[in-house]
Design a protein around this nucleic acid. Structure first.
Lengths: 171, 171
DNA sequence: GACAGGTACGTGGACGTCCAGGTATCTTGG
DNA sequence: CCAAGATACCTGGACGTCCACGTACCTGTC
């Protein structure tokens, strides 16, 4: 399964040799992130599959669990999870079919729909969290200082991409 | 669109407050990588869409372009791109429909299929590379030293996950 | 107070990813 | 030489993501 060399480094070398040196590192960064995502997704889904969830649905469930009332409009969940609203609709469809959430009309906005977590949803979310903490999050595949480096550099990337505004240093 | 706070940090704080401190950083790392992937994918696909490609198909095209004979079996491409063989089959179906690659029987292995890049495939691959280099890879969204940090930490992660073996330091 | 523009969701479709299962072919052991 | 197992590839299906589009409903302006 594994290769005798690093395919990302191989591609970066190709880039440099073809006169694209100024883009080689960025290409390597993009390709690296793609593969890192794939690795993380596979580990998480392996844990969640026997529990009948996916990471996308788990994240939505946890967002609702942590919200003060246990219910959020689709748009708000979409912004918090930073995915397209239709992805939330998709996740809600499946979670609702499994009785882990219910849709309710928004009390004051006739256009809106509230997604509310059920007791079964909270139970499953906590079970999944325990398994994920144990089998993935507590052993992410890097030493602790490297994990922190990764989180910080990606935070920088996300902030520069406009994901969020830092409270301090308002300008 | 953007939030007044970093959702990853918010989640990490929740984890710590709920007694999951030892898993909080790993959770933050996984979530960060998921979002970084999404950002990269969106930037790349935005460039490639008008050219009629996706990143997955572009990567396959470049792999073939860089191969010595311009042709590879599906399994070999799958291993090099580190995706499931059926993902390659899917990409080849679409590339072949666009006349960017052709399928040929393997000359010595009756089970195998060779994917061969066409002249049109090479032309489009180079056009896409020029655009990607210009609009994404040369401006990945981080200062150069941070880009290198990101590539290195992910390389460490990938190697620990068994993606490849380093030639030096054989043990 | 009516109408224009914006907002909230949903539907249908395209695409990539993986898994499960099936067929053809190669390889290896008796 | 033949049977058993491995390998290469494809098909069909599940899932998540996004886009394009449509339909309600809210808001602000004249």
């Amino acid at each position: 399964m594994d290769l005798p060399f690093d395919p990302v480094e191989e591609a970066r070398r190709h880039w440099r040799e073809h006169g694209w040196a100024e883009a080689a590192d960025g290409m390597a960064a993009v390709t690296s992130v793609m593969r890192a995502h794939q690795l993380m997704q596979a580990r998480v889904d392996e844990v969640l599959r026997p529990l009948g969830l996916t990471f996308a649905r788990y994240e939505l469930l946890m967002l609702l669990h942590f919200s003060s009332s246990g219910a959020l409009p689709v748009t708000k969940a979409s912004r918090r999870l930073q995915v397209h609203p239709t992805s939330v609709t998709n996740a809600v469809d499946r979670l609702e079919a499994a009785a882990l959430v219910v849709r309710r009309p928004h009390p004051t906005d006739g256009r809106g729909t509230l997604i509310a977590i059920t007791a079964a949803g909270r139970r499953l979310a906590l079970t999944c969290t325990a398994r994920l903490n144990d089998e993935v999050f507590s052993r992410p595949g890097l030493p602790p200082d490297q994990v922190e480096v990764l989180v910080e550099v990606v935070a920088d990337l996300r902030e520069r991409a406009g994901d969020f505004r830092t409270a301090e240093r308002a300008g």
